[in-house]
Design a protein around this nucleic acid. Sequence first.
DNA 1: TTAATGCTTCGATTAGCATCGAAGTATGAA
DNA 2: TTCATACTTCGATGCTAATCGAAGCATTAA
Lengths: 226, 226
Amino acid sequence: MKEGPDIALLGSLIGDPARANMLTALMSGKALTASELALEASVTVQTASSHLKKLEAGGLLGQRKQGRHKYFTLSDDDVGSLLETMMGLAAKKGHIRIRTGPKDPALRKARVCYNHLAGEMGVRIYDSLLARNFIAADNDTLILTEQGHSFVAEFGIAIDTAKKTRRPLCKPCLDWSARRSHIAGTLGTELLDRFYQLGWAKREEGTRTVAFTPKGEKAFAASFPL
Amino acid sequence: MKEGPDIALLGSLIGDPARANMLTALMSGKALTASELALEASVTVQTASSHLKKLEAGGLLGQRKQGRHKYFTLSDDDVGSLLETMMGLAAKKGHIRIRTGPKDPALRKARVCYNHLAGEMGVRIYDSLLARNFIAADNDTLILTEQGHSFVAEFGIAIDTAKKTRRPLCKPCLDWSARRSHIAGTLGTELLDRFYQLGWAKREEGTRTVAFTPKGEKAFAASFPL
DNA sequence: TTAATGCTTCGATTAGCATCGAAGTATGAA
DNA sequence: TTCATACTTCGATGCTAATCGAAGCATTAA
């Protein structure tokens, strides 16, 4: 018995509610940490770890270590389209969708990526800094250029203190939507803190949403033009 | 917990090995009975019945009662394409396929459908008789016409004895490939028996394959032109 | 009617696996 | 170094569901 489970393996991987929630959370292209996925699935991190291991072994997930975090994404576009097909069929057959929903709209715009800004605005920082040659890609890491140092200092960040730590100054960090990179590392953290400090934005309780004030959003747009 | 298993339900349905085997067996478009599916999945009929109930409730299967048999098919083309997608991904990810395979080639041409001939040659009988007005569709059943009676008698079948039973003379029966109908009922049984009797074909042991002799195949083609 | 076949339901057993607590490893911060 | 965080592994528990035997229905044949 239990002989040839070609599609059965795939099915059973997707068939567990916890794993299905993780996969749908990753469907947006977002790269999520194990803890975040645990939260999405409403299970403990141990359980999540076990699931993620299985999903990875099954070839559905890819991972990328970033410091002490482990980011998971769907491994393939094929996986994405399979899930999309399944969601479509499930909807058609009346297996109604009860999943969350009210979170995303604000999260897409700006959210905390555990210590730096992600979402559209996070991507914008990256693009803006790169376009003005304030940062430059160097062998899979990012370095802050001469002009970049000036800009950061002008922006009110004491970069020297940040330099002491072993933590990289800039790091690219995956974003969802277009799987775009944004700024992580010490600089990313410092920037986000500075936004809070300037009163441009503040963190919403309980969620990962970062809420910008109208005034803050204008100032942001001025400081990070495209 | 266990909150919103949109795609999880689909996944778990496909995730069970027995069900996966049934679904892949139905992937060719063939309409199979519960017993046949049980055989395919290597489980008892009770277990199969339970699985089929779930698959039908999940909207993956459609059924058609035919006498005391219950024929199952994939309910949708969407279901078929989902399974195809999954099989493709499974192959790509290295979940090797161990399933049967060597059966089909001969079965496609001619096979026993529990008491009548199915497969391409079965479909041909249906088409030939219909084209020559030997049978006619009447309110979801088939009737043998006046000319049809002559033909059958000429072919060597004592139709009177068949008429006595309560069993319908002709019945359409689903076939796979193009989901075409072929002749079942008393007439179907009698025709197959006559083929055996004429030495045109004989049943292969252990399989559902019907092996026609070269001579038999020619005679068949002559008797059932298109 | 009786007998046979195809399928379903019921009940009990069993196996698998998701789950979490607790301890262990790794990375980063001070 | 020490402390904190992110994640993994181990072990035990408990729930779910697949499985099959046995009995019940439905259809067909004699």
